[in-house]
Design a protein around this nucleic acid. Structure first.
Lengths: 145, 145
DNA sequence: CCGGATCCTAGTCGATACTG
DNA sequence: CAGTATCGACTAGGATCCGG
C-alpha cells in the first residue's frame, strides 16, 4: 500500500516525496487521514503536555491537573478520554472511598514519545532561528506600512 | 537554560522527563511555548500538507492549490504567510505580466521535514493499532450503554 | 475525588466577491 | 495569477453546576 522501499530513510524529502506521490495516486484523503488525525491530536492544546507528564510515571487525575496548572477539568477529562480511546493511555479505577483513577502510558503511547521527542528537540534547537525570522518578517512588514 | 546533558538521547521518556522537570522548575509556560507553537502549527489542517508538497520542489501558488484540492485560497494564503513568517519557506515574486509567485522550503523548513517524516512513519505503522483500540473502546462503551 | 452536562464566548475556516 | 475583505457557520475550550 505504501510502496516505500526502505525503512531506513536517507533523505527526509525523498521519503515524504514518495509517500506523497503514493497518496496522490489513488486515495488521497483516505490514506492521509491517519497521519492528519495524529497531527491534529498532537496539535491540540493539551495532548502533548499530558503525554509528557505521563511519560515520567503514571499519574492520578488530580496529579495531572496540578502538573498542568492551566488546564480545565473539562479539557483534561476530554483529552484523557480521547487518548484512552486511541489506545495511548490506560485508565485504572481504584474503588477506594474517595474513588481514585490512575492514568498511564500504553506501549503505543510510549512509542509515540520518540517522534515527539524528535520534534521537541527540533523545536528547541530551532526556536532561535524561528524567532529571528519572525521579527525580521514583522519588521519588513511594518516598514512597508 | 535547558540543562540537557546529552544531545544523544538514550530513552525518549528520560529525555522528555528531563525536559519536563526543567520546564516545571521556573518558567513553565515560557519555555514550552516554542514547542507548543510548533505543534500547533503542524497540527493545523494544512501546514504539513504544504510542507510535503514543497518538499518535492518549489511550487507556484496555483500549483499548490492543485496539489491540495480541498484547500481554499484563503487558507493557503494564510498558511503560506505564517510559514514564511517563521522562516520555513521563501517567497519569490516574479513581476511577469500575470504575476507569478514561487514558494520553496528554506533550510529551516527542510530541517523540519525530518522529525515530520518520523511522525508520519510512526502514524503509518501505528494506524492499525489505533484503529483497533478505537473500535474496542467504542464497542465497550456501547455495551455499557 | 473524578468527571458528566450545560451554557457561552472567542477564535477558526469556508464561500463569495472584489483588487492589482 | 495572486491575493484581500467581509460574512457566516462551526467548534474548541473555559466556567459553572451537578452526580457518583
Amino acid at each position: 500500500m505504501t510502496g516505500l522501499r526502505e525503512n531506513n530513510l536517507g533523505s527526509a524529502q525523498e521519503c515524504l516525496g514518495q509517500r506523497f506521490q503514493t497518496w496522490r495516486g489513488g486515495e488521497f484523503d483516505l490514506a492521509l487521514c491517519p497521519v492528519r488525525g495524529i497531527l491534529d491530536r498532537l496539535g491540540d492544546k493539551w495532548t502533548t503536555l499530558i503525554l509528557i507528564v505521563l511519560a515520567q510515571r503514571p499519574h492520578r487525575f488530580s496529579e495531572i491537573r496540578r502538573s498542568i496548572p492551566d488546564i480545565s477539568k473539562r479539557m483534561l477529562t476530554q483529552t484523557l478520554r480521547d487518548l484512552e480511546r486511541d489506545g495511548m493511555i490506560t485508565r485504572r479505577v481504584f474503588p477506594t472511598k474517595p474513588p481514585s483513577v490512575e492514568y498511564g502510558l500504553t506501549e503505543l503511547g510510549e512509542s509515540l514519545l520518540e517522534p515527539v521527542a524528535q520534534l521537541v528537540t527540533w523545536a528547541e534547537t530551532s526556536q532561535t532561528k524561528i524567532a529571528m525570522a519572525r521579527s525580521a518578517f514583522d519588521a519588513a512588514e511594518a516598514s512597508r506600512g
